[in-house]
Design a protein around this nucleic acid. Structure first.
Length: 929
DNA sequence: AATCCGACACGGT
DNA sequence: ACCGTGTCGGATT
């Protein structure tokens, strides 16, 4: 899809060819941000001072050549140190007749007349974030077909500006009919090229009569051959298709000469090679131009789909097949079972999950039938072919298990809900295409198969909002069904929902009270849990990991667990990945839920490795399903941890080193209004920044300094335009909005930390320094608190209870610090911990030339420092029990048990009331009770 | 491709 | 009125 778009851009570039802007247009064609190109054009990003050259770091070295030989110039450039100093990906030279280019990474070269650039759209693809080697994983047939369809669609839209939802729906249906015809004439459903040939020979070249022709044709395909009203032979050659595809009257759009030509070109593509699962996602981007850029960003890759369907149902069926391999009765029973399976994707998009599931089931069915045949052959001594010729009475008992050779798996066993009308049409169509492809496979195996035409009912794909529809109406639960719900519903953080989606959540969670901090996807978990309640049905979704971490866990999981449901498999967090241009920056999990089954092994997948466990906690770890609730004070009596100060100032109250210097140079009296400012970054990397820190009673004096006055005014301006809270502080623009600063000793702890460090770098506060809201502070704390925060024990707890961002942790006071279970310790123990803290501090001081980030670099942590931390860990572990812990899993298990015990004791001691107050989610808790 | 955090909206107390 | 949490993120190297 990107290719099509780029090809388009390049064609435009060639049509309006302009030497001055050529190189910028070229960069723009590959979706470089406009702003960057404008800067480049103005010289901002250009590192070369020589006219006619562009040197854009990492991206491009470009040279206009007038008199020299192009090949000499480029050969020279490739090894010229000045030119490759900034590691440009491409070197391009041109005299505006010929264009030469080198891809410095792949060593590919390009040597073409410059006006033919549009024929080589793939050469510069790495600019668009696509490595060429990735292309083969995108099936070329899919890419080409989608690209051509995009062009056709654009042409059609030019002639037929659709406005009403009905028009758009008609166009959606029309496209799906076209796709079917292209596919049909290329895969033996129709005679070879029947559709395209008939259009090219029976419609006029200017396209004027094409729409009426198509209307007639579609009506023919909707009419049983016996009921046709003597149409001309060239129309009668088209079979009766049925299945609903041509049932409703949707007038075809009008065509031009160009669009007719494009349509015929589309027909000549290799439709038989397309993958309905992936193609669907690609074609979906055709009709939503806003999605073309980031095409397919959110479609689920086949490996990820397999990660869902295998543990959800496929592995179990395959195991049964293995176990039943020599028992015909059992095999027949398994076949029967396949026909009772229902697969339901309540966010099906263009149907990827359903198609993959369908194909896998059909393949398994073929295997079972083949096995039955070979059993027969073994029992009777006859080949399956010969068997048909022998009277039944003569057959042995085993041979009587002759399975009838047709597929028992119907598309009507596949259910879906999709919000997008076009995607839903494509899902229906793609299922038919997949069915035909599987019928062909079936025929290869048995030389017979179900007929593809007339089409049978397709999947039950409903166009609608899954959060509002009654799933039991969409996919009814019958006693002998095996129902599997799956999919990859949309992830939308609680703050990114639009009005409609907020309304969806209010409705879905009406009975649970306020759960507005849940991700949108939790709607699917909640409804699915209601759906499978008390039945054999199971569900598994690809989800954002956030619903198994941090504050969302106590919001959604108690509801599911109280329904006596359990997680029976999960995939631990992995990065979202598909072939799209830029993968969504999100970390996913896969969670499978069923009603509690005794003695059923649960499986945790860590990438390719899996582990059988007794229980999977909502945090997706091997542990009891204890849920940690937020609390506003420390369970273990630690001093209060608070967030640093935050400006809401648009950066206007902050100063760089140079800004401070020039301010003090011009106004030495300004120094009293300036303090060091530290965010997490500054504290880890020793970066130095400053901020304006002006008390109310200093304001009048401070405003006399023009620079400060300007900064404060800018801050006010910013706040007036900003959000709800910032606006409130617009009248005090000299102040940080949240001021938590205190002039006293304390401990600082970063809010975001790399998940890769063995220990979280903790430090003591520095005097006269303002800490930003990127760090937490504990003022007036005993040094042993430092010991606890630096410990492995605490890190293990953080890994589970805090939220994650990508692979890093976002520390949380209420979820992690306040819930951390730690037993009271003696004065001596405190002293011992403090000794370890001072060892760590002195080890750091011995290496004071290094930043904290360097000291705690997991690969290069100094041995003396690591030893000091290990000694501390031993001491902390001994505060819990005398027997040493051997692994983090053991630590975690211990912590969970201790947490539950301490919560219980606290409840006993303080009585229900205080517990209620501490339980920040009391409303919800009451609902659960 | 890996790394690591800024800024702020918005719900909750 | 105050405070904490998280971001199908974003910039930088």
């Amino acid at each position: 899809m990107i290719l099509a778009q780029i090809e388009n851009n390049l064609n435009q570039l060639v049509e309006n060819f302009n030497k001055q802007t050529f190189i910028y247009e070229l960069l723009l064609a590959y979706n470089h941000p406009k702003a960057s190109i404008t800067r480049l054009q103005k010289g901002g990003l250009n590192l070369s001072k020589i006219p006619g050259e562009i040197d854009w770091k990492k991206k491009l070295f470009f040279k206009e050549v007038t008199h020299e030989d192009l090949h000499d110039v480029i050969d020279n450039a490739v090894t010229n140190e000045r030119i490759i100093k900034h590691d440009p990906r491409f070197i391009v030279v041109t005299d505006f007749e010929t264009l030469l280019a080198v891809d410095r990474k792949t060593k590919d070269t390009l040597d073409i007349p410059i006006l033919e650039i549009a024929k080589h759209p793939d050469f510069f693809l790495p600019w668009a974030g696509i490595e060429k080697r990735q292309l083969p994983t995108e099936n070329p047939a899919d890419v080409k077909a989608a690209a051509k369809m995009a062009k056709l669609y654009d042409e059609i839209r030019k002639e037929n500006p659709a406005t009403s939802p009905d028009d758009i729906h008609s166009l959606n249906v029309f496209l799906s009919r076209l796709l079917f015809c292209f596919f049909a004439e290329d895969t033996g459903i129709f005679e070879k090229n029947l559709f395209t040939n008939s259009i090219s020979s029976h419609t006029s070249q200017d396209g004027s009569d094409l729409h009426t022709y198509l209307n007639t044709l579609f009506e023919i395909m909707n009419t049983n051959t016996s009921q046709r009203n003597n149409p001309p032979a060239y129309l009668d050659a088209f079979p009766f298709v049925n299945g609903g595809l041509f049932r409703n009257n949707h007038p075809s759009p009008k065509f031009s000469m160009k669009s007719r030509q494009l349509l015929i070109e589309c027909g000549s593509l290799q439709w038989r090679d397309i993958h309905p699962d992936i193609f669907g996602s690609m074609i979906q981007a055709v009709v939503s131009p806003e999605h073309r850029g980031g095409f397919g960003m959110h479609y689920t890759s086949v490996p990820n789909i397999m990660k869902v369907i295998e543990p959800l149902f496929l592995n179990e069926l395959k195991e049964e097949f293995e176990a039943a391999k020599f028992e015909p009765r059992r095999l027949l029973k398994l076949l029967e079972r396949l026909s009772k399976i229902k697969i339901f994707d309540p966010a099906c998009g263009s149907g990827n999950f359903l198609i993959i599931a369908y194909k896998e089931l059909r393949l398994l069915e073929i295997e079972i039938l083949q096995q039955l045949q070979s059993l027969q052959k073994a029992a009777t001594g006859f080949e399956p072919k010969q068997l048909e010729l022998i009277p039944k009475a003569q057959l042995t008992l085993a041979a009587a298990y002759q399975p009838t050779l047709f597929s028992r798996i119907e598309l009507s066993q596949f259910y879906g809900i999709e919000l997008d009308d076009f995607a839903h049409e494509i899902a229906i169509l793609s299922l038919w295409l997949a069915q035909h492809q599987m019928n062909v496979k079936f025929k290869e195996a048995f030389n017979t198969c179900n007929p593809t035409l007339p089409l049978q009912a397709s999947g039950n794909i409903i166009h609608g909002n899954a959060t509002r529809l009654n799933w039991e109406v969409v996919c009814s639960k019958e006693a002998d069904n095996y129902i599997y719900i799956l999919g990859n519903p949309p992830y939308l953080g609680a703050k990114e929902l639009d009005k409609q989606q907020k309304g969806d959540m209010d409705l879905v969670f009406a009975e649970l009270g306020n759960v507005k901090r849940l991700d949108y996807i939790s709607c699917w978990f909640k409804i699915a849990s209601d759906y499978i309640f008390g039945s054999e049905a199971k569900y598994a979704f690809v989800s954002t990991n956030s619903i198994c971490q941090g504050e969302q866990v106590p919001l959604i999981w108690p509801y599911i667990l109280l329904k006596k449901e359990e997680i029976f498999f999960c995939h631990q967090p992995f990065d979202w990945e598909n072939n799209a241009k830029s993968n969504a920056g999100v970390t996913c999990v896969i969670v499978g839920v069923q009603n509690i089954k005794k003695d059923c092994g649960k499986i945790i997948y860590y990438g390719a490795i899996s582990k059988q466990v007794k229980n999977i906690s909502p945090y997706l770890i091997e542990a009891n399903s204890i849920i940690v609730h937020q609390r506003v004070n420390s369970l273990s009596g630690f001093p209060k941890m608070i967030l640093g100060s935050s400006g809401f100032d648009g950066g206007n109250l902050l100063l760089t080193v140079n800004e401070r210097l020039s301010l003090i140079n011009s106004n030495p009296e300004a120094e009293v209004y300036i303090k060091r400012f530290m965010s997490g970054n500054d504290f880890l990397y020793d970066d130095i920044r400053y901020c304006l820190w002006i008390d109310d009673d200093q304001l009048e004096e401070a405003l006399k300094i023009p620079y400060i006055k300007v900064r404060i005014e800018k801050c006010k301006e910013f706040r007036l335009k900003a959000g709800r809270d910032a606006r409130k502080a617009a009248d005090v623009p000299h102040r940080f909005f949240y001021q938590t600063h205190r002039d006293s000793d304390g401990i600082i702890f970063p809010k975001t930390t790399s998940g890769k460090r063995e220990y979280v770098p903790t430090d003591f506060v520095k005097a006269n320094t303002i800490y930003s809201n990127a760090v937490f502070l504990i003022y007036d704390a005993d040094p042993y608190i430092f010991a606890i925060l630096s410990s492995r024990m605490h890190k293990v707890w953080m890994e589970v209870t805090s939220a994650k961002m990508r692979s890093d942790f976002r520390y949380s006071v209420n979820l992690t610090y306040n819930t951390f279970p730690f037993l009271p310790i003696t004065h001596n123990q405190k002293q011992e911990l403090e000794r370890h803290v001072f060892t760590i501090i002195s080890e750091r001081e011995n290496l004071s030339e290094k930043t904290l980030a360097e000291l705690y670099d997991p690969k290069n942590m100094p041995i003396s420092l690591r030893d000091a931390h290990q000694e501390l860990d031993f001491a902390i572990d001994r505060c819990y029990r005398s027997k040493p812990f051997t692994s983090d899993e053991e630590r975690l298990e211990y912590l969970f048990r201790l947490y539950a015990q301490m919560i219980e004791e606290e409840k006993q001691k303080n009585g229900e009331i205080i517990f209620e107050q501490q339980n920040t989610k009391k409303k919800i808790r009451n609902k659960y009770a």
